[in-house]
């Protein structure tokens, strides 16, 4: 089955290797992986999607937690959540053929973000199936798609959900305040 893990990891060199290496060792292919800054200073948030047996979820989550740089891991499983993906699609289009693509973009609620006399670039955000749908339609004309760049999935649970680990770390403001306090202390010490 498809597993989606959302993790908070320390923003340090090599952390991504440690996470990826765990899946490599289990011979599990990572379908998609997105990483970026989170609401907490010093912590990155990642969404990792992979195909593994149903029982593997517990062990993967437990093993991820064993990595010293991994702060929190959520196995989304069937929990209510919002998943989005961003795609940039470059297609060949002349002034004569643009009109048709503009219509498609309208229907799929995508956007044109770059336009030249030979090509244009479509930006689209949505669930995987919607992006696949647009790509499929664009493929109906052979040779039209020049490049596809997809971000991979980003997932967030619905509702006011916070994991026990993050709760224990305090709210974002608390964390920021304590970080500032530590810096102030350090600065005071130096003086």
């Amino acid at each position: 089955m498809l597993h989606t893990f959302v993790a908070y990891v320390e923003d340090l060199p090599g952390v991504l290797t440690r996470v990826a290496s765990l899946f490599r060792r289990l011979n599990i292919n990572i379908n998609s992986l997105t990483v970026g800054r989170s609401e907490r200073p010093g912590l990155s948030r990642l969404t990792l999607v992979c195909e593994a047996s149903g029982e593997a979820g517990h062990r993967i989550r437990a093993s991820l937690f064993k990595l010293e740089n991994v702060v929190d891991v959520d196995d989304i499983a069937q929990a209510p959540s919002v998943t989005r993906e961003l795609a940039l699609i470059k297609v060949a289009a002349t002034p004569q053929t643009r009109g048709h693509i503009f219509d498609l973009v309208e229907v799929f609620r995508a956007r044109i973000v770059d336009l030249t006399s030979e090509s244009l670039m479509i930006e689209m955000t949505g669930v995987e199936s919607k992006i696949e749908g647009l790509i499929e339609v664009l493929r109906e004309d052979e040779g039209r798609i020049l490049e596809i760049c997809r971000s991979g999935k980003m997932t967030m649970r619905r509702g006011h959900h916070t994991s026990g680990v993050l709760r224990a770390m305090g709210t974002v403001t608390e964390v920021e305040q304590s970080a500032n306090a530590t810096e102030d202390n350090a600065a005071a010490k130096l003086k």
């Binding site: 029982e55 517990h58 062990r59 437990a62 093993s63 937690f65 064993k66």
Partner: peptide, 8 residues
Amino acid sequence: VDPAEINK
């Protein structure tokens, strides 16, 4: 002590 060992 290691949760990853449970049901492994």
